[in-house]
Computed example of a mutant assay.
Amino acid sequence: MRSTVAVMLSTSLLMGGQVGVVAAKTQDSKQSEVANIATSLIGKDYEYKAKGPKQFGSAELATYAYKQVGISIGSTISSLYKTGTKVSEKSVTPGDLVFFASSGSGSPTFMGIYIGSDQFVYSSKGEDEVVVKTYSEYSDKFVGARRVIESNSSENKPSKPEKPASTVADQVIKNGEKYMGTNYKYGSSSSTTKTFDCSSFTQRVFKEAGITLPRDSRQQSTVGKSVSKSNLQKGDLIFMKASVNSTSDRITHVAIYAGDGKILHTYGSPGVTYSKYDGTNWEKRTVKIKRVI
Rank of each mutant, 00 (worst) to 15 (best):
S58F: 07
K125S: 15
L237S: 05
D96R: 00
R215V: 08
S275G: 07
W282C: 01
A145I: 02
G116I: 03
Y135E: 04
G144Y: 03
G106I: 11
F110Y: 13
G116V: 03
Q119H: 14
H265T: 11
K67L: 11
V69W: 05
M180S: 11
T39S: 12
P164V: 10
E283C: 08
S91F: 07
L41W: 02
I251M: 09
E150Y: 09
V168H: 05
S136A: 12
T193Q: 13
R218H: 08
K82A: 13
D170M: 05
G74Q: 00
I251Q: 05
Y122S: 07
V287N: 06
L232Y: 04
R204M: 13
L232G: 01
T83W: 03
Q119R: 14
S79A: 10
S200T: 13
I251K: 03
G104V: 09
S10A: 14
D128T: 08
D278P: 03
Y81M: 03
C198A: 13
R146E: 07
S230T: 09
F120N: 00
A65F: 00
D249P: 10
S105I: 09
H253S: 08
T192A: 12
Y48M: 11
E60W: 00
V22P: 02
K82S: 14
F196I: 10
S159A: 13
Q27Y: 11
I256N: 06
Y184F: 12
V22I: 14
Y122H: 12
A101P: 04
G235S: 11
S88R: 10
Y277M: 04
K49I: 09
K241G: 11
T247F: 09
R250I: 11
K67N: 09
M15D: 14
S102F: 09
S40A: 15
Y64L: 05
G17P: 02
